[in-house]
Structure formats: C-alpha cells, structure tokens
Computed example of a mutant assay.
Amino acid sequence: MAFTLATWNINSVRLREPIVCKLLEEEGPDILCLQECKSPVEKIPVEQFRALGYGHMVARGQKGYNGVAILSRLPIEDVGDMDFAGLGHARHVAGRLENGVVIHNFYVPAGGDKPDREVNEKFGQKLDYLTEMRDWFHAERPEKSILVGDLNIAPREDDVWSHKQLLKVVSHTPTEVEHLGETQDAGKWVDITRQDIPEGQLYSWWSYRARDWDAADKGRRLDHIWATPDISNAGHGSRILRGARGWEKPSDHAPVFATFDL
C-alpha cells in the first residue's frame, strides 16, 4: 500500500479551513496531520473535509490553543495520546492504519522567547516535554511507526537561515538540538525529509513579522517527518510546499510531504 502523508501547523483550523481545503483539493495527500488546530474536536469543520474524501479523523482538541488532528482518506483507528510533562495540553494523538502502521502527530511546545528555564517557564516545559518523549520511546521501542509534526526545533545548521545568528534563539539552541537528538535516537527515528534531501538549506516556517517573507527568506525547518528503521526505506518523495506560505490568510508554516510504499 502506497500513501502520501503531509504535516502542517495550520495555526487555527477553523480560521484557515479554506486553505486546508485548497491543499486537500490541489495536492490530495492520503493523510494530513495538522497541529495548532486551536479548536475543540467537535468544532473542527469536518463536513468540508469529508466532502473532499477525508472521511476519517482522529484528533485531540483544546479551545483556542494547541490541538492536533489526523485527517485521512484511509481508515484509521484512534490509539491514544500522551500528555508529556503533565501540561494538560492537546499536543499528541496517534492513529493506526489498516496495514498496522502507527502515525504519531506531535506539537512540541514552542518554548517562549528566552532559552533559559530559570527565567522562562515555557522553555523548561519544552525541554521536559522532549525528555519525557525520549524516555517513552526508550520504553516503547516503536516499530512500524511514523512520527510527524511541528517539533519546534530546527536541528541542523542548514535547517536555519543563519546558524551563527540563531544559536541563542529558541528553536535552534544547542540545548534544544541536543534534546531533540536524544529523543530521535531513543526511537531510532530516521529523518525522512533529510534522507531524501540530504544537502542544502531547507525551511518550513517563516515569521509573520517579516514584511516580505519570501524575499527575506529567513526560514527555519521546524516541521518534521520521521520513521522507524523498519519502514524508513519505504519513504520517498519528500518536499515542502513553500508556496502555501503565500496563500491567502496563510499559516506561518508550510506543509511537509512524504510518500511511503508499504
């Protein structure tokens, strides 16, 4: 079974319902994982998505904040969620396809503005969240799994517009990169995007603060698709739909795609 999967921090699924529909119509991924839905599950506009062929959804919602959802053309079974760091946030949901593949959809905390847990509680929460993810993967030893989402860290030097200038900026600090690396290693996760596109600058997020985001191109790769080693060789066709960042009333993130032949 081959399927194409996309992950996208949508920054309010109700506000940006038109561009979610645009993506589903024009790109047609079999599965779309959304983060920062900012909606209770019962208020996610599923009718429009069903009309486009996406009749299945597993989701966790929260009014005004966070929230994750997996929209699918393929049957998918809800297999739960984890509340890492005990934040009480809707930041994870998992679904199992009929072929046994488990998809984990994550929205890791952004971490606030200052990379110092002594003065910024949110940064500490981010590090604690990643530590508990790491420990869970050590214990669970995931197999036949795909992990996607806004992990809010750009780990490589070529995942940001300026490694030197962002070393002390939340999302690219050495501490965060180390925590993400330990989390990835704990599950032996393979970065599918970089497996396919091993070299060169690659971004999935551009700040709303930039007057002309496209020309300035001060981006970061915060959105990821990983897979366990037993299925990582089945992943291919990775791409980032940069153009979506320029759609009407856009998210500040662009969708990331990969195809799996399983």
Rank of each mutant, 00 (worst) to 15 (best):
T173H: 08
E132W: 10
E17N: 15
T7L: 01
W205F: 13
K63F: 10
V41H: 07
Q35C: 05
D159A: 00
R141Q: 12
H89A: 15
L180C: 05
A59G: 08
G61E: 02
A69D: 01
Y54W: 10
F106M: 12
K249N: 13
A227N: 06
R220D: 05
L71Y: 03
G86M: 13
W8D: 00
A216K: 14
P229L: 03
A258Q: 05
D223M: 07
N152G: 08
N120I: 07
Y107N: 11
R60N: 12
L151G: 03
D128F: 11
E118M: 10
V20S: 04
V148S: 01
V177C: 07
L34E: 01
I225H: 03
I231K: 00
V177E: 09
L166D: 12
H56T: 05
P109N: 06
S251M: 09
A94R: 13
L23H: 03
G55V: 13
S238Q: 10
D223E: 10
G53D: 10
P198S: 13
E42Q: 11
E26W: 09
A186W: 02
K122Y: 04
W206S: 04
E17Q: 15
A51V: 11
D196K: 12
G100V: 05
A210H: 06
I225S: 03
N11F: 05
S171R: 15
A6Q: 04
H236M: 11
V256Q: 02
K126Q: 12
H104Y: 09
N9Y: 11
V101M: 04
P75S: 10
E132G: 08
E199D: 15
L34G: 00
M57Q: 02
E157S: 08
I70R: 00
M57F: 02
W189D: 08
M1L: 05
D116G: 12
E98F: 06
E17I: 09
I231W: 01
C37M: 12
Y208K: 11
L34N: 00
L74F: 02
L24Q: 04
F106I: 09
L15E: 12
D81F: 15
D159M: 02
W8V: 00
D30K: 08
D252E: 05
L52D: 03
T259N: 06
T193M: 13
S162Y: 03
E132R: 04
I31N: 02
H236K: 15
A244W: 08
G200L: 05
E27H: 14
K164W: 12
I192W: 00
H104A: 06
A85E: 06
T175E: 14
D252M: 11
S72Y: 05
E17H: 15
